[in-house]
């Protein structure tokens, strides 16, 4: 498998995890016996997709990122690594745990217990917001490589 394909799989799984978490949020807004099973399935899907994002992205980060890091640091956007990548790689670990917690919370009494439902709403909303922040940070890291390579050509 080419490293470019591995790199593209990382944000793809991430976006799908964000969409699945939006699905959990919407189901939780209208939690009833009829949709409880669907809500729990979506929460498991969110966790699985986030773990795939972690494994694929982690593999790419450990094996291939070193070369990109050197390019970024020598280019005009060193903060793309120094702030965005460093923050992203560590905040992501929290996001992974929160996405893992989501199905645990969803297996509580989401239909009759208002607090459990509110907790699922908050957890899924945080997964969405943090997931979007990760996507944005990833875009800046990619741009850091691009502007560095462009600067070399000029």
């Amino acid at each position: 498998m080419s490293k470019e394909l591995i790199l593209m799989m990382h944000p793809t799984f991430g976006v799908l995890a964000v969409i699945a978490s939006v699905w959990v949020f919407v189901e939780a807004l209208n939690a009833r016996e009829a949709n409880a099973g669907r809500l729990r399935s979506a929460s498991v899907l969110t966790a699985i997709l986030m773990w795939l994002t972690y494994i694929v992205g982690g593999y790419w980060y450990v094996v291939f990122y070193g070369a990109d890091k050197a390019i970024i640091k020598a280019g005009p956007w060193p903060f793309a690594h120094g702030f965005f990548m460093e923050t992203k790689e560590h905040v992501f670990l929290m996001l992974l745990l929160l996405a893992t917690f989501l199905p645990i919370a969803a297996w509580g009494d989401i239909v009759k217990n208002r607090m459990t439902r509110n907790l699922v709403l908050w957890a899924s909303a945080l997964v969405v917001l943090m997931g979007l922040a990760m996507e944005g940070a990833g875009a800046i890291v990619s741009m850091g490589v691009k502007v560095a390579l462009l600067a070399k050509q000029i």
Binding site: I104, A105, W107, G108, N113, R114
Partner: peptide, 28 residues
């Protein structure tokens, strides 16, 4: 009472997430 609490498993892992997140940030 049921409405105020979320059950031992959910609260246990919720609290675990909060503690682990803070410790992870401090480890960074």
């Amino acid at each position: 009472e049921t409405d105020r609490t979320v059950g031992p498993t959910v609260s246990g892992y919720g609290l675990s997430y909060a503690i682990t997140s803070l410790l992870s940030a401090l480890l960074v």
